[in-house]
Design a protein around this nucleic acid. Sequence first.
RNA 1: GCUGCUGUAGCUCAGCCGGUAGAGCGCGUCCUUGGUAAGGACGAGGUCAUGGGUUCAAAUCCCAUCAGCAGCUCCA
Length: 640
Amino acid sequence: MAKVKLPNGAVLEAPDGTNAYQFAEMIGAGLARAALAARINDKMVDLSTPITGEVSLQIITNKDAEGIEMLRHSCAHIMAEAICSLWPKTRLVYGPTVADGFYYDVDLDTPIRPEDFPKIESRMAEIIKADRPFERIEMNRDEARQKMAGDIYKLDNIDRASGDVISFYRQGDGFMDLCRGPHIPRTGAVDPKAVKIMSVAGAYWHGDASQKMLQRVYGTVWRNKKELDEHITRLEEAKKRDHRVIGRQMDLFSFQDEGPGFAFLHPKGMAVWNEIVDFWRVIHRKYEYSEIKTPILLNESLWHRSGHWDHYKQNMYFTTVDDMTYAIKPMNCPGGLLVYKSNKHSYREFPMRVAELGLVHRYEASGQMHGLVRVRQFTQDDAHIFCTPDQIESEVIGVISLVQELYSAFGFKDYHIELSTKPEDHIGSDEIWEVATNALAGALKHKGLAYQINEGDGAFYGPKIDFHINDCIGRSWQLGTIQLDFSMPMRFEATYTDKDNTEKTPVMLHRAILGSLERFLGILIEHYAGNFPLWLAPEQVRIMPISEKTNDYATKLAQVLKQNAFRVSMDLSDDKIGAKIVKAHGDRVPYMLVVGPKEAEQNAVNVRMRQSQQTVTVPVDQFIAKAKEQIAQKSDQLGM
RNA sequence: GCUGCUGUAGCUCAGCCGGUAGAGCGCGUCCUUGGUAAGGACGAGGUCAUGGGUUCAAAUCCCAUCAGCAGCUCCA
């Protein structure tokens, strides 16, 4: 007898070999209709799986996260069949699910274009309407290899599969694909109105740029049309947060053809930038950093010495002056080391924390650029900490505290941490790398922070801790980084005099908190969707007279506010007040001060707040005091 | 860098199976002086990314280059 225990604790019995679907029927006809798959003893299986002995059983429907996932995976197969029937020369490669959808990589010489998507969708709808069963076929490895003979992609997938049993899934008679499964019972379990082909793009086989470029067709499927529509709406909303769009709308920055990858910061963008930097300096004084500035252009020989010539040259810009080759710096560390070496140092100075807002240039391949978050010229909020080996952990802990303090001031909570280890192309011995990597991991553990290991992704001179944050469309960008470096000080013969009066090599920590100010600004724009808190807002206050008759009062008021260091503007156009308000909301101005004869008489302002329809009239002094307080506290709340 | 797509007014976009350019917003001038999410009129503004080609004729078709977008790869 098969004895199954359900999630609610109930136990059902049936003859051995009764399958999961039949158990679902025993529970209820509605559940059987909704059933997509089953979980037997924590393993996801097809509904057709026969059950013997004593097991736990959960019927999976589209209400479960696993159910949606399976719907998507099966939909990838349905899409594959549709594509194969439209383009018979298609060779299938690999078709997994991803967050919110699925894709299938196909090898097909004719490009699939967006205008082909409706064709694919209607072909898929036909397959769905035919309500064909998904059928699992198992064979051993040799049989599978024979079956797929000549198909390099599927043979490769078989070779990468684990276990002795290789499974295929057939949907109806025509189409069969190698797949681990499990799948939904029938194609008809998909709502054809909830399916959409989203995009197509190139993708290298195995993610290897030396391999053939395949076509990756992205699709999505939801439980029903309503959820699909909601998903599309979410994507559209996310796009509205895009820092490139908001940057244009708010006139914060621009890019020009004359300098691809080089951002032009406009006055309003600079206002935000300067607030960030002012705050950054205050915090760095608190954490006992000094600040330096090193040249952008430095002789080629320096970069030979640092190792950049051998390990970073293809990303660097060079220029020749007086027959000498200079490099435009891609990093600040060599310059920082020259400053260090300009004096003799003692252990008594350690830990020595030296910051630099360093402008660096890195050549990025053309397809890599992305608004402010991936550029060819950027300002790093860099610092180099020189210390003794036994100070490493406490210094790393100190930097992590600084990261936490800075990020929280900007309301960042959703970042994740990665620890990157030794890359293939590196300098320094294995022992040094191990000590350094352990020191970083130790500091993270001490701080009780979760992190993931990023194998082989360290800098060429040392391992690193990176802080990553997602942009509006879910892409992850690195902000802060802490990199341990035992090699660069040796290469530069940097030394300090230790207690025992011997000369030793200091340990060097490279670190950036915001990472690149350009990238940080881009992420910040998306984080706030352009609705900056008052202290950061490029335009903090806009004065809007009801009519020309109050222009004089408005002008005087603006003077007072400017004297109080507010970033303030006036709307003296002959628009009616309603139109002025629309524009101010559109420009995301935190405080709109509506003034007419009544306010002028009482030396007051009528305050309207961004994203709100409420208004309140307060004396000018009160407005100033309140707003100043919000700025001082870096509050993200408005209100009088 | 690779694959695909895109490039028309300051911005967002229409026009594109060929017959020398349009809208809305913005901008300027004028009327209006209006109390909380768009008053009105008139006007200026474009070598249709750049360079070739096909054609009697190219914004429109073809090629190349540049730039941007999405994804892949990269981000040392």
